[in-house]
Design a protein around this nucleic acid. Structure first.
Length: 701
RNA sequence: GGCGCGGUAGCUCAGGUGGUUAGAGCGUUGGAUUCAUAACCCAAAGGUCGGGGGUUCAACUCCCCCCCGCGCUACCA
C-alpha cells in the first residue's frame, strides 16, 4: 500500500474534440478513473477529478475543412457531444473544462513564458514544407509523395505504409499536400524547442529508479524504451492559425504545440474549478462533494503541495506525453508536483479488429446511449470486466449480452429481487428482526467483510477488473446464502429464523448499495431507493447493521432486464454496415483524365448487346468467356468479371459493349470487344445497362 | 528495421521473486431446487501454458532463436 496522502488530484485524458469518442476511450481512461474517484470519495478523501475537451492542434482545422465548417464550430459540436455522453455515462468530474477557454490560454502562456524566461527553451530555424494554396505549413502526415525506397506513390511524410520505412518529408519524390493536392514549397520557419535530453538523468532517476516497482510494466517499459533511446529536443510551437498564441514578440502565426498545452489543461481545469466555486458560478464545474470556504487560489495545493497524490488515467498512446514530456515541463517550470502514477491501459479491440472511428469499426458513446437508453451501467460493467489492463482486450456484442443476462440480471438483479420479494411476502416489506446467528450466518458475515477488503485492495492497486469481480462476488454470496438457508421452506415452521435470514440478506443489499456505487452508480442509486436509505461511506458499509428492524422498503422492481438476441444481432449488423459505408467514403475519388476531343470520343463504337452465353475459363479466377449478340454479329468476348458474376447471373442481360476495340488474345481465346462496367469504390462491378430494354445493336453516344 | 508489451481451457481473462494435482467468469454436461427475470445453488469434463533449444533436482515462470498480434519510433492529438 502506498502512503497516506492528504489530498488527491485525478485526471482523465482530455478527449480530442475532433470527432465522437468510442467505448475504447471509455475503457482506456474514463471508466477506470471514474471508478477510482468514486471510491476515493466514498472513503471521504479530499479528491478533485478534472477533465475537459482538448481543442487545439492541426486535426481540428482539418476536420473543419472536411465538414466544410469552422474550427470553432467543430470544437463546439464535439465538446457538447462528448460532454453530454460523459454525463449520461455517470462520469463524475468535478469539472469538465475546455482548452479553448481564456483561463487555459493564460495558464499555458504563463508556463511557456516561465520556461522561456529561464532560458530553458532553444530557438531553431528550419525549412519545412508549406502549402501556398492553403497557406499553411504542413505536418508530416499531411504530405504524401513517392517513397524513395519502394516507389509507393502514396507514402506519407513520416512513413511509407507499403514498405514500412521511416521517412522525412524531404525524402519524398514529388511531394504533394493532402489538403489541396498542391506541390508544397520549402520555407524557413522558427520554432522554440524544449531540450528534453537535458532532463534525461533526472527522468531516469524519477521513473527508472523510483517507480520501478509501483508503475505498471507496460508503462514502465514504454518509458524505459524512450529514455534508453535518448531524448531529443522537441518543438513546443507550431505554424498554425488555430491554437494558443506564442506569447512572444515576432511570433506571428505561431501557436503552442498541442501536446504542450493539452496536459496543462489539467491545471487550467483545476484553476477554473476553484475560481467558479469561489465566485459561486457553475459554468463548467459540477463539484461532486462539499468544498468549504473556497477561494480562487485554493487550486494551488492540488498541484504544488507534495502531500497531494496526482494520478493520470490515460490510454497507452498517451504514455510518453504523461510520463516524459509533461513531467519534464512541470519539473522545468518548478513548483509543481509530479504524477504518483500513470496507470495507462492498453487498447480494447472490437469483434476481432481494432477500433477506429474513421474506419467505421467502433461503438461510439453517443450511439450506444441512443441504442441502449437507461443502460449506462451495463456498458460500464461490460467494460470493467474486460478492461485492457495488462494487454489489449476484446469487446464482443455476445460477451456484452452474456455479461448483462448471466451476471447483472441472473446474479446481481436476481439476488436483490429474491430478497425483496421474500421480505414483501413474509414481512410486509419491512426489515424483520434478527435473532441468534448460526454458523452459516457468521460465515456469511466473515466472507462479506473479507470480500469487501479484497475489493478495496484491488482498487488501491488500480486492478479494476479484479475489483469488479469481487463486487459481483458479494451478490454471489447472497445467492448462495439463500440457497443454503432456504427461507421459503422455513417459512412454514420457523418464521423467526426466516426473519434473521432475510434481515442479513437485506443487509447485503444495503452493503451493495455502497460497494457498487463506484462501478455502477446508477444502479447504486436504484438500490438505495429500493431500500430507502441515503448513501453511506465505504467503511460504514462493512457492517450488517445498516438497516434497522421495521425499516420500510419500497415495492420491489427489477434492476436489469434481459437483452435479447435480435438486439445483439442488430448491433453486429450495424457494425459491419458502418464499416462498409466508411470504406466506401474513405476511398479517394479517382481524378479526372486528360481532356479529349469529340473526334476522340466518336471513334468509339459502343452498342447495346445481349449476353447469349457465359462460361468460366479454366485456370482463370477472373475471366468469363461470353458470347454476345451485338445486333451485327455474335461474337466472343473475354471479360474479367468472374469474381463478381456467375455465368447464370448474366446470361440474357443487356450490356454495353465497345465493339471496335482491336481484338486481343486472352488465355488463348480471341476477345472481340469489351463489356463496359461501373466499378464502385469498393471494387464491386455493375453492368452498364439501358434503363429499359432496347433492341440489340442500339448505339450508345 | 529498432525498441516495448503480449501469445495460458470453446470464449474473455488471472497467474510477485521458478517448486506438490496450472486458476476465475462465461459457455458445455450432470445433479439439486422452486423464493426469484427458466434465474439461483452444487459438481464434473475441458489446457503437452505460440513453436524449438538451453540453464536447473525442478520452468507457464529465467536465458537464446523463430513465428504471430498490438504499440511506440519523438511535427500522428
Amino acid at each position: 500500500m502506498s502512503k497516506d496522502f492528504k489530498r488527491y488530484l485525478i485526471t482523465a485524458a482530455l478527449p480530442y474534440a475532433n470527432g465522437p469518442k468510442h467505448i475504447g476511450h471509455l475503457a482506456g481512461a474514463y471508466i477506470p478513473s471514474d471508478v477510482y474517484v468514486r471510491y476515493l470519495r466514498s472513503l471521504d478523501k479530499d479528491v478533485v477529478f478534472v477533465c475537459g475537451s482538448d481543442e487545439h492542434g492541426t486535426a481540428i482545422p482539418n476536420q473543419a475543412l472536411k465538414e466544410n465548417t469552422t474550427s470553432q464550430a467543430i470544437i463546439d459540436k464535439y465538446d457538447a457531444q462528448i460532454r453530454d455522453c460523459f454525463k449520461k455515462l455517470g462520469m463524475s468530474f468535478d469539472i469538465y473544462h475546455r482548452t479553448s477557454e481564456q483561463i487555459h490560454h493564460e495558464t499555458s502562456q504563463e508556463i511557456f513564458l516561465n520556461l522561456y524566461n529561464k532560458g530553458l527553451l532553444t530557438e531553431e530555424v528550419s525549412e519545412q514544407y508549406f502549402d501556398d494554396k492553403a497557406n499553411v505549413f504542413l505536418a508530416d502526415r499531411y504530405i504524401v509523395g513517392t517513397c524513395p525506397k519502394c516507389a509507393n506513390p502514396n507514402a506519407y511524410g513520416d512513413q511509407c505504409e507499403r514498405c514500412g520505412s521511416t521517412l522525412s518529408p524531404r525524402e519524398l519524390i514529388n511531394p504533394r499536400s493532402t489538403l489541396t493536392g498542391n506541390s508544397p514549397v520549402l520555407k524557413e520557419t522558427k520554432h522554440w524547442y524544449l531540450p528534453l535530453q537535458n532532463y534525461e538523468g533526472w527522468l531516469s532517476d524519477w521513473i527508472l529508479k523510483s517507480h520501478k516497482d509501483d508503475w505498471k510494466v507496460n508503462v514502465y517499459g514504454q518509458c524505459k524504451s524512450w529514455i534508453d533511446a535518448g531524448l531529443q529536443p522537441r518543438a513546443m510551437t507550431r505554424d498554425l492559425d488555430w491554437g494558443i498564441k506564442v506569447p512572444l514578440p515576432n511570433a506571428e502565426g505561431k501557436v503552442l504545440y498541442v501536446w504542450f498545452d493539452a496536459p496543462i489543461g489539467y491545471i487550467s481545469a483545476t484553476r477554473a474549478l476553484f475560481k467558479e466555486m469561489a465566485e459561486g458560478k457553475q459554468k463548467f464545474s459540477t463539484p461532486q462533494r462539499e468544498f468549504k470556504n473556497i477561494t480562487a487560489a485554493d487550486w494551488k495545493p492540488y498541484w504544488q503541495d507534495k502531500e497531494t497524490k496526482l494520478i493520470h488515467f490515460v490510454g497507452k498512446d498517451n504514455i510518453v506525453f504523461h510520463c516524459i514530456i509533461f513531467p519534464i515541463i512541470l519539473h522545468a517550470a518548478g513548483d509543481y508536483i509530479l504524477p504518483d502514477n500513470v496507470p495507462a491501459n492498453e487498447f480494447m479491440n472490437l469483434e476481432g479488429d481494432k477500433m477506429s472511428t474513421s474506419r467505421g469499426w467502433s461503438i461510439e458513446m453517443h450511439e450506444y446511449l441512443e441504442d441502449f437508453p437507461g443502460k449506462p451501467d451495463v456498458l460500464r460493467y461490460a467494460l470493467l470486466t474486460n478492461l485492457p489492463e495488462t494487454k489489449d482486450s476484446e469487446f464482443t456484442w455476445r460477451d456484452f449480452q452474456s455479461k448483462n443476462n448471466n451476471e447483472l440480471v441472473a446474479i446481481f438483479g436476481n439476488f436483490m429481487n429474491r430478497a425483496l420479494v421474500l421480505t414483501q411476502k413474509y414481512f410486509e416489506n419491512k426489515v424483520p428482526n434478527r435473532g441468534i446467528l448460526h454458523q452459516v450466518d457468521n460465515d456469511l458475515v466473515n466472507q462479506l467483510g473479507e470480500t469487501q477488503a479484497f475489493l478495496g485492495m484491488a482498487l488501491d492497486g488500480y486492478r479494476f477488473r479484479e475489483a469488479t469481480a469481487h463486487m459481483m462476488q458479494i451478490a454471489r454470496l447472497g445467492n448462495k446464502y439463500l440457497a443454503e438457508t432456504e427461507p421459503w421452506k422455513l417459512a412454514k415452521t420457523d418464521m423467526e429464523r426466516v426473519g434473521t435470514i432475510l434481515n442479513l440478506s437485506l443487509q447485503i443489499i444495503a452493503r451493495l448499495s455502497v460497494i457498487v456505487e463506484p462501478f455502477l452508480p446508477f444502479t447504486a442509486q436504484k438500490l438505495r431507493k429500493q431500500i430507502n436509505i441515503d448513501s453511506l461511506s465505504w467503511s460504514s458499509a462493512d457492517s450488517v447493521n445498516l438497516l434497522r428492524p421495521n425499516h420500510l422498503l419500497s415495492e420491489p422492481s427489477l434492476l436489469f432486464e434481459k437483452i435479447e438476441d435480435d438486439v445483439i444481432n442488430a448491433q453486429i449488423k450495424k457494425l459491419t454496415d458502418s464499416k462498409k459505408e466508411m470504406e466506401l467514403a474513405n476511398q479517394p475519388v479517382i481524378p479526372a483524365k486528360a481532356e479529349i476531343s469529340f473526334d476522340d470520343f466518336s471513334k468509339m463504337d459502343i452498342r447495346v448487346g445481349t449476353i447469349l452465353s457465359a462460361e468460366r475459363v479454366e485456370k482463370s479466377k477472373k475471366l468469363l468467356k461470353l458470347n454476345v449478340d451485338t445486333g451485327i454479329d455474335h461474337r466472343t468476348v473475354m471479360s474479367g468479371i468472374a469474381e463478381h458474376f456467375s455465368p447464370e447471373q448474366i446470361i440474357g442481360k443487356q450490356v454495353s459493349i465497345l465493339i471496335n476495340l482491336a481484338p486481343r488474345k486472352i488465355m488463348g481465346v480471341e476477345s472481340q470487344g469489351m463489356i463496359l462496367m461501373a466499378e464502385d469504390k469498393d471494387g464491386t462491378l455493375r453492368l452498364l445497362q439501358p434503363n429499359e430494354i432496347v433492341s440489340a445493336g442500339s448505339t450508345v453516344s
